[in-house]
Structure formats: structure tokens, C-alpha cells
Nucleic acid binder design. Structure first.
Length: 582
RNA sequence: GCCUCCGUAGCUCAGUUGGAUAGAGCGGUCGCCUCCUAAGCGACAGGCCACAGGUUCGAUUCCUGUCGGAGGCGCCA
């Protein structure tokens, strides 16, 4: 780990251990040095206070003993005891420069693979076949995509699973509507990406005609029986929808492909086995005609035990059964150590119950964990759930297209010299990046306000600001006629105050990724990148590169290059492009 | 009624597993382009961290309660 704050912790841990061991009376529980970034110095060591309490000594004296150990001499140029016993540390420029040398020669820019390589399954996106993707799918897709990228960067094997809704009673209606339209006409309508009207028309036909309803019910029976002709028709719907989803995914620039499709239909054959195994474990009870499992600790509104229904009174299976089948499949076939469900917060109790039952059945344990990664809803500027004027969900593509169009207009205005085809690419990167960044940059558990003006304002904590910082650096090298790779061996000299500040921010990169991954919160990485871009902008204003004498000139170019690499990598982990000009 | 999540500057949000004087951006006021992209930088103003207790040397952070907002609560997915 190249982060100097982490290095400090590593250096100090033996010192704190020694202090604990030297006092027989306090047990051998280790003491955390508690090193934190500080606004009064580069870092502050807080661990002396609680330890002094345990040892019954004066905290300032203890802090002085920590300093007297001498371990800070190699990394710090300023060390002082402050307040009740804090130790303020200012890193030496030489130490920071040597840490930068380590980072810039490493592919991971400081990121290192986890000691335990895990097989992780990430369940995200999950649109419905023959239904339009809307804002609700934006969050799951963007957050899941970023988590996948971060997990892979940490050396884990990641299986993406797109749990599309491709099964269930609505398909009787959809297939009958397909037949009524005629296969070729229906195929044309669906391939245009107009899934909304297809679904709605089917619903209208269903509501208007008893005969249609009856046909639909018959069709569901045929579908569940695996009737070949019905399956063929069903596959048309699935394939056309998947093709449409792919156009959206390509537009968004996420990793999902057809290989990641793991629809509900895939788990249908596994359902009876779920019931059998639950029965064998003695977990199934009969309640009001349904087969259920009562996980402890859940109650309904009357205070009675709340069941997870695994087989309906009609004999059919439901969502819970399917989720349990998924868990079995993912742990036993894929060998998952960890399963992430990037699904809205409203499903929280459902997942808690499913996981509880899976643990009762022994499908999940300490070695194999399942985690619900919940997120809040997208609000309009009126603070209500984002909808169109007519009250319908906003189509995701409409949202993305408008963001790109607005970005294109802004680029045309701010940088009219850009070649038209370059401009289109840049506008796409900016527009999509702005939408994703707005989604990823706040704590996912909270609802957030979707506001084009804000996310595309190109100022403040937005995607475009970050991309701008990166493009600016690329521009420096273009203007100077210097190849970026050529400065990577140059000696780095940190002179002006903005230079060590930028260095410290660069070195904090792996810590930021760790923190984001620890709680599956991409916004922590967003906060980091924003701080990095800010540190660079400040450096750029105060530390002139062009015309500076050597070795300052090369040093600053090296710092700029490294900043750009970390910016690009960080944005990459968020699934956001870093254009070279804008 | 029970459960979960949320409540921080006028607005939108951070706050790194309890640390000193709570930070950004937008909006407001004021500076900075004969100079590498001003899509920028610097400064000022703006706070009872919803409220009340508790634990602690120390609480925006942990616990309890109250108020306010959102969501969930047996055969939809």
C-alpha cells in the first residue's frame, strides 16, 4: 500500500504493540494507532489517547514516547504533540516522492489484489422482457457495473448475472399479442425498441376481451409445459428484448452482454429441488394452503410469525423460490464465495428473509455470503418519483439521449474547433458520464434528485468537471509536444505547497477504492476523484509548467501525467470515459 | 400497529469503522485570463449536525426515546 497514511499505520503498529506489552496490567489486546488524514497536518495519530486511558498514563507523555521511538523520522519532516495528545505529522517531500515512484511504476497505481481471491456473483440490472427499460434500471445497472469493475481490479473472479424477467404469467398475454400482431410485424415493432406500446397494447387487449384472457391463460399453461411452438414464440420475445437491452447497454457503456443473461426461466427447472431440499431439512410448514418457511425474527402486522412462501396454494412457485434456486445455483455450480444483489431498497425485507432461509438450509454460511446492496429511488426536481408528464416511468434511453444532446450543445459552444466526429464521441462520453456520475456520486441508500441542469452544469462535483481535469492534462502534453510515457522516469520534486498536496491525493487512491469496495459504495470513490481533480486544478493554477526550468519542468509534467493516469483509472472503475479532449 | 432506511449551510450533498475549530459544490458578495482549456483558481458570508436524554477524556458518528419524510409488512415479480 502506497498511501502514506497506511504506511504510517504500518510503521506505528509495532510501537503501539510494544507499549501495550510493556505494561503487564492491561492485557494483550492490541492498540490501534488510529492514523487519520487531518486538516491541521498531513496526518494525525490519535491512538495515544485511548491507550493512555488504558495504561493510566498521561496522553501527551505517551504521545511523546511514540515520537521518541524514532520510526517517524524517515517519513516525516514535522512531528508534534498537539492538544490533549494528538500527534500531527507532516510528510517529507522526499518520502512522498519516493512513494510516487513506487506507484507510477505499478500497473495498479497502488491497487493490490486482495489476499483472498473470491468468486463473486453480482446480480444487477434485471430489466423485464418485452418491457421498456426505465430510470429504475439506471441505478442498478450503473452501481452494479462499477462494483464489478472494482471487484475485478481487486483480483476477484466476477460473474455478472443479469436476472432478466423472462418468465411468469404476463408471457401468456404477450405471446398471444405477438400472434395477433403477426410475427413479422411484432418483430419489427419490437426491434424498433418501442417496447412500451407493445406491452401496453397487450395489456389493453387482455383487459378488453374475455376470449383473449382465456387464450392467454391457456398459453401460460403451454409455456410451463414446454410446448415447442410456444417456446419458439417465447424465444422471439426474449431474443428481441435482449437485442434491445444490448443497445441500451452499449449506449451506457456497461460490461453486460448476452453471456451474462441469467433470466428467471433458467431457474424454473431447479424449483422443485428447492422445495425438496427444504423439506428434507424439515423446514417446510403448511400455512393457509401454501408451503412456507418461518425464518425467526420476522413478524407480520398482527405480530404473528411471517412466513416466506416457497410454494403457493395453487402449487406454483414464486419469487422467493426462484431466489433460493439462484442461491443454490450460484454457490454450488458457480462456486460463489460472495453474492451481491444490486436491487432497490424496497426489497430489503424480502432479501433478509430469503438469506435467513438459505442459512437455515445451509446454502449460505460464514464462507459463502450473500449481501443485498440496496439503493434509493430517482426523484424529479419536484422531489417526487421521477415520471413523465403523463405519469409514466421515464424511458432510460430518452434520458441518456437527452443527456448526450445537451452535452453536444455544450461542447459545440465551449469548444467550437473540435472536429464534428470527435465532438459526437466526446458528447457521448460527457453526457453518459454525467448521468452515471450523478447516480454514483451520492450515497446509494438515499433517494437522489435527477436534474440535467445540475449534472451537466460542467462545474462543481460533476462528471464533466472530472473529465475536464483529465482532458486538460492531455492538452498540456499535446501543446508541449511531449510524449506522456517519456516523463515517467523523471525525478519528482515537490516544492510548492500544491505539489505535496497533489501527491498525497494521488497516493490515497488505493485507500479510496478499498473504502468504496468495503461497503459497496461507489460514491466514496467519486468523492476521492473529485478531491483529486480539485487538487490538480489548484496545482495547475499555482505551479506553472510551461517555461519552467528543469528539473521543475519535467517533475511537474511527471506529476500531471500520473494524475491523469489515476483520474482515468478512477473514472474507469466508475464506468466513465476519460476523453483526451473536450 | 410493527420493521427498515433517511433527517447536516437557502439548495444539492460529503463527513474514512468515536477525535481538535463540522467540509464541498450550487446560489450570494468580492478578486484573478498580454500566460499551458476561465468547463478554472483564490477569498468572504452562510450551521442548535431534526429534538431530548444516555455512554465516553471526547459524539454529526454508538445506545434509548420523541418528531418529521420515504419504503416494506403471506400466496405479484
Amino acid at each position: 500500500m502506497s498511501d502514506p497514511v497506511a504506511t504510517l499505520t504500518r510503521l506505528l503498529q509495532p510501537v503501539f504493540d510494544e507499549l501495550v506489552e510493556s505494561d503487564a496490567g492491561v492485557g494483550n489486546e492490541s492498540a490501534d494507532p488510529t492514523v487519520r488524514p487531518s486538516d491541521r497536518a498531513d496526518a494525525q495519530i490519535n491512538g495515544a489517547l485511548p491507550l493512555a486511558k488504558r495504561l493510566g498514563t498521561n496522553p501527551r507523555e505517551l504521545a511523546q514516547r511514540v515520537i521518541d521511538s524514532g520510526v517517524l523520522a524517515d517519513v516525516a519532516e514535522g512531528v508534534e504533540v498537539a492538544g490533549p495528545g494528538f500527534i500531527n505529522v507532516t510528510f517529507s517531500s522526499e518520502f512522498l516522492a519516493s512513494e510516487l515512484d513506487v506507484v507510477r511504476s505499478a500497473d495498479g497505481l497502488g491497487i493490490e489484489p486482495d489476499s483472498r481471491e473470491m468468486q463473486v456473483v453480482v446480480d444487477y440490472s434485471a430489466p423485464n422482457v418485452a418491457k421498456e427499460m426505465h430510470v429504475g434500471h439506471l441505478r442498478s445497472t450503473a452501481i452494479g457495473d462499477s462494483l464489478v469493475r472494482m471487484l475485478e481490479a481487486h483480483g476477484h473472479r466476477v460473474t455478472r448475472e443479469n436476472h432478466v424477467g423472462d418468465w411468469g404469467t404476463p408471457f401468456g398475454m404477450l405471446i398471444e399479442h405477438l400472434l395477433d400482431l403477426g410475427e413479422t410485424e411484432a418483430a419489427e415493432a419490437l426491434s424498433l425498441g418501442d417496447l412500451n406500446s407493445f406491452y401496453k397494447d397487450a395489456r389493453v387487449a387482455f383487459d378488453a376481451s374475455d376470449e383473449f384472457q382465456e387464450r392467454s391463460r391457456q398459453r401460460v399453461v403451454l409455456l410451463q409445459a414446454g410446448d415447442p411452438e410456444t417456446m419458439r414464440l417465447w424465444e422471439i420475445l426474449v431474443d428481441l428484448s435482449a437485442a434491445y437491452f444490448n443497445t441500451v447497454y452499449r449506449k451506457m457503456g456497461v460490461l453486460l452482454t448476452d453471456d451474462d443473461l441469467a433470466g428467471e426461466s433458467r431457474y424454473q427447472p431447479l424449483m422443485p429441488d428447492v422445495i425438496e431440499r427444504l423439506r428434507a431439512a424439515g423446514l417446510v410448514e403448511e400455512s393457509d394452503g401454501a408451503d412456507v418457511v418461518f425464518p425467526p425474527g420476522f413478524e407480520n402486522r398482527d405480530g404473528d410469525p411471517l412466513p416466506l412462501i416457497v410454494q403457493k396454494g395453487t402449487g406454483g412457485f414464486n419469487y422467493a423460490t426462484s431466489d433460493l434456486a439462484c442461491i443454490i445455483d450460484r454457490t454450488e455450480r458457480i462456486g460463489a464465495d460472495l453474492i451481491l444483489y444490486v436491487v432497490d431498497a424496497g426489497q430489503s425485507q424480502h432479501f433478509q428473509m430469503v438469506f435467513a432461509v438459505a442459512k437455515m438450509a445451509g446454502w449460505l454460511d460464514d464462507e459463502t455470503d450473500a449481501v443485498h446492496v440496496p439503493f434509493g429511488i430517482v426523484l424529479g426536481t419536484d422531489r417526487k418519483r421521477l415520471k413523465t408528464r403523463s405519469g409514466e416511468p421515464v424511458r432510460l434511453v430518452a434520458l441518456l439521449d437527452e443527456a448526450v444532446a445537451r452535452a453536444e450543445a455544450a461542447v459545440a459552444e465551449k469548444n467550437p474547433d473540435l472536429e464534428p466526429d470527435v465532438r459526437a464521441d466526446v458528447a457521448r462520453s460527457i453526457g453518459i458520464g454525467a448521468v452515471k456520475y450523478a447516480d454514483l456520486s451520492t450515497d446509494r441508500i438515499k433517494d437522489y434528485v435527477f436534474d440535467f441542469d445540475r449534472m451537466l452544469a460542467f462545474e462543481g462535483n460533476t462528471g464533466p468537471y472530472l473529465q475536464y481535469a483529465h482532458a486538460r492534462i492531455c492538452s498540456i502534453f499535446r501543446r508541449e509536444g511531449v510524449d506522456r510515457a517519456s516523463v515517467r522516469a523523471a525525478s519528482i520534486e515537490l516544492v510548492e505547497p500544491q505539489e505535496p498536496a497533489l501527491a498525497r491525493q494521488i497516493l490515497a487512491f488505493p485507500t479510496a477504492v478499498d473504502a468504496a469496495l468495503e461497503t459497496y459504495s461507489p460514491h466514496k470513490l467519486c468523492t476521492y476523484v473529485y478531491d483529486l481533480a480539485t487538487a490538480f486544478s489548484s496545482f495547475y493554477e499555482h505551479c506553472r509548467i510551461k517555461g519552467s526550468p528543469e528539473p521543475i519542468y519535467s517533475s511537474r509534467l511527471a506529476l500531471a501525467d500520473l494524475t491523469a493516469r489515476v483520474l482515468e483509472r478512477s473514472l474507469g472503475l466508475l464506468g466513465i470515459d476519460a476523453p483526451e479532449q473536450m
